[in-house]
Amino acid sequence: MKLVCPAGSLPALFEAVDNGADAVYLGFRDTTNARAFPGLNFSPRDLARGLKHARAAGCEIFLALNTYPTCRKLGQAFDAVDRASDLGADALIVAEISVLEYAANNYPDLRRHLSVQGSATTPAALDFYKQQFGISRAVLPRVLALQQVEHLAATAPVELEVFAFGSLCIMVEGRCQLSSYATGKSPNCDGVCSPPEYVSWSESAEGRSVRLNGLLIDRFEADERAGYPTVCKGRYRVDGRLMHALEEPVSLNTLDLLPRLTACGVTAVKIEGRQRSPAYVGAVTRIWRQAIDRLASGRQPAVDPQWHKTLSGLSEGSQVTLGPYQRAWQ
């Protein structure tokens, strides 16, 4: 099992590499990737330094080029493919047809992974991307139950990478317009979800309110932990009843599923969190490295209870879930 870790900055990349990542994924500092947040991501110069450090440790670098460029942004996207190849990235993580076609035609030896934003959940969809663009791996959207992942792993024409830990998108990635409906900015076009420049906090007698582009996403009492106002984690009224209509502010943690994911032939587990701190990336990478190595060695217990405790402490809202891997969640 390979461990794929996030880096939103050069220090985070160092943390991931030094704590045992097999590969680090990152993006350029523009809207060609799905974490286009201010102050995040890599200049070509940073990337060159990061690559050197990773190479020395035998770690690979994957470049995320996973937004959906509109006509005017195609030049920027193709330019990013050129740069990634020039700098020597090991693989591209791509969602969109024209970027895949460009990369396959111009850099056939540069590995292409289908991004989670490509929304492929079946052997047929994977066949499409493999036959048309020669992808070698696909990252699965967070919608399949564990048994479905196992079935897919048995028949998939390419390597599979699954999300293991971090913030939980509960919608099919690449097919969620909740952010653009509320703010006009979307993961597909702009590489952002519920972007911070649209967030505002205010205090009143009713509590602490958080808004996204003026829309009340939630309101917290003094003793409640206030979360980031991602549209899907808000509290709303459904036919008059107040509830987390879509999802609570929880994070994904699949440490307990690692043995089955490994046994069924999934190639890599992916840690979410390019927007998180270097310290976070280092701590999470360290634990998952230990877990993968422990499993490979056959020593018991396969999962150290302390790992769970540490990971929960690092999670959004300190609550973790197995998410859609577990049918009861669905």
Binding site: V172, R175, C176, L178, A245, L246, Q330
Partner: peptide, 17 residues
């Protein structure tokens, strides 16, 4: 606007899919 593994209609009445 969005699709999920989860059934939100069932969730609204406290059930799973």
């Amino acid at each position: 606007l969005a699709w999920s593994a989860r059934c939100f209609t069932a969730r609204a009445v406290g059930r799973g899919k």
